[in-house]
Design a protein around this nucleic acid. Structure first.
Lengths: 108, 108
DNA sequence: ACCCATATTCAAGTCATCTTTATATTGCCG
DNA sequence: CGGCAATATAAAGATGACTTGAATATGGGT
């Protein structure tokens, strides 16, 4: 899973959002570090829908513009949970390797 | 930074290794989860050398075959350290979002 | 009137990674 | 001796997520 995908699933984890809402939520959650491009987002939403990790929730008509809301599926939540565990594990392993490099000798 | 790149830097963090050694170390560190392809590895080593994150350490002639050892540069260690912090931060954010989904209401 | 934020979609291109293939040497097996 | 596996590196082509850029449309602010 690449980062844009990770952030889209993360944004949708707490509640359904429409495309533009995902853009804003990702920016907020990543404290401005991750800025999703529109092309990336909508292509990813289609792909993730096809994979069954997200699904359309409902449509809203606001000011003549249609908003399509998406929600995380249970499979999507499971996938994000697994990915989160992997990230944590990877970070732990890298930190341990770096500590060896710096000669702390903390690892038995 | 994509995962193969992350694992190559992680493998080289504690000591210099030659190509095949990186393959084995990545497999060991990831507990068999990550299996680097040879093509991915050598292309990445060239790219990372060009970027100054790793550099050739020395060559050894073993049984008529040349082994080229690579080491992590200081810049490479800094990059891996930054990446590790990012992974941890991302994992924390996703875990918090998932906990909201599951309705624990732990967040404010 | 013009620009900006909102909101979505599409086309073209980039680039890391994956797959496959080639090369070379050593050692084992039959 | 011939073929096969393991070691070791490299290069070619394919894949596909992602990036860039633009088109389309509405409403608010200056």
């Amino acid at each position: 899973m690449r980062e844009p995908t990770f952030w889209i699933l993360t944004a949708l984890a707490s509640r359904p959002l429409h495309g533009y809402g995902v853009l804003q939520e990702v920016s907020r959650l990543s404290e401005g570090q991750m800025r999703l491009q529109a092309g990336t987002l909508y292509a990813a939403l289609d792909r993730l829908t096809a994979e069954g990790l997200v699904e359309p929730d409902h449509d809203e008509l606001v000011d003549g513009r249609n908003r399509r809301y998406y929600r995380l599926t249970d499979r999507g939540a499971t996938a994000l949970d697994a990915e989160t565990a992997r990230l944590r594990s990877n970070a732990r392993t890298a930190a341990r390797q770096l500590s060896v490099r710096h000669g702390t000798g903390r690892t038995a």
